[in-house]
Design a protein around this nucleic acid. Structure first.
Lengths: 138, 138
DNA sequence: AGAGTAATTTATAATGATTCTAAAGTAGTG
DNA sequence: CACTACTTTAGAATCATTATAAATTACTCT
């Protein structure tokens, strides 16, 4: 069973029809060892280069949003006008290199546990995200 | 010496001319006990209500950016299309209430120290920001 | 395989935040 | 007061993202 069939199955079992466009995007996003951090604009450009047939920008946006809703992608909060996504959906944190604007994954084991002492009545913690900004040594 | 004179002096010593507009924005931002989290759009609306004379949106943007550059404001990274600013420029973290989209300050003493174990050669840590997302207990 | 339907894709328009522009106004200096 | 550099301003421009509505495609049921 090749990757394509796996993607088709996965999509179908998520209630998403396995269209040509979605399969291409799956290939690009999930057929890689390393985590991938991207904006929808980035992704659209890469798709254009990699495949001959073009995928409409609107479709890329739609797809990324469905994937996010299904939990296959994570949105990342960094200081920016652009929205970044991450193929690593596990609980983890990030380095942001402010010199190059590059994002680097930070495993849970790379961060000593963060404990929040303050409590807000009626509220519960949903997630704890650590963003470590780094820059060049001068 | 009233607050206004203090603002005038502060602005001048930062190399910023104390204009009517900047002084009004200073009053609104810095004459308060509590930290203030806002977008430029928010601020513009509040200014419109509080003062009779209108301040152009472009001016509000310009001013906020100068203040940020001078270190009087901090930009906050939250998952959004909008850019948030914070009058608390000290090292601190935030709760983001995803139900109401409200931001709440988290003192350093409310967070047990975060230590980053991973090192990147040639890079040094500039800041560590923790964003704790909270939601209603169901 | 063909027909019917609901989901999907698409180009394009619309939106909304932010930045740019260039002209008019203002503060600081002498 | 006059000069110059800094500011403000309205409006246009830009850029990411979302909405729209028509055309296309996937799936189901015969």
């Amino acid at each position: 069973m090749d990757n394509n069939s796996i993607f088709i199955e996965k999509l179908r079992s998520s209630g998403l029809r396995p269209t040509k466009q979605r399969l291409k995007i799956c290939k690009l996003l999930f057929q890689r060892k390393e985590t991938f951090h991207f904006t929808v604009g980035d992704l659209s450009k890469i798709l254009k280069h990699k495949f001959k047939e073009k995928i409409s920008l609107a479709t890329v946006y739609n797809t990324i949003h469905s994937f996010k809703k299904k939990g296959y992608l994570k949105e990342i909060a960094i200081n920016s006008d652009k929205t970044y996504f991450d193929t690593n959906t596990s609980d983890h944190h990030h380095f942001l290199d402010v010199t190059t604007n590059e994002l680097i994954d930070l495993d849970d084991k790379d961060v000593k546990k963060v404990s929040i002492i303050k409590k807000i009545p009626g509220k519960k913690i949903k997630s704890i995200e650590v963003l470590v900004k780094i820059e060049n040594n001068n």
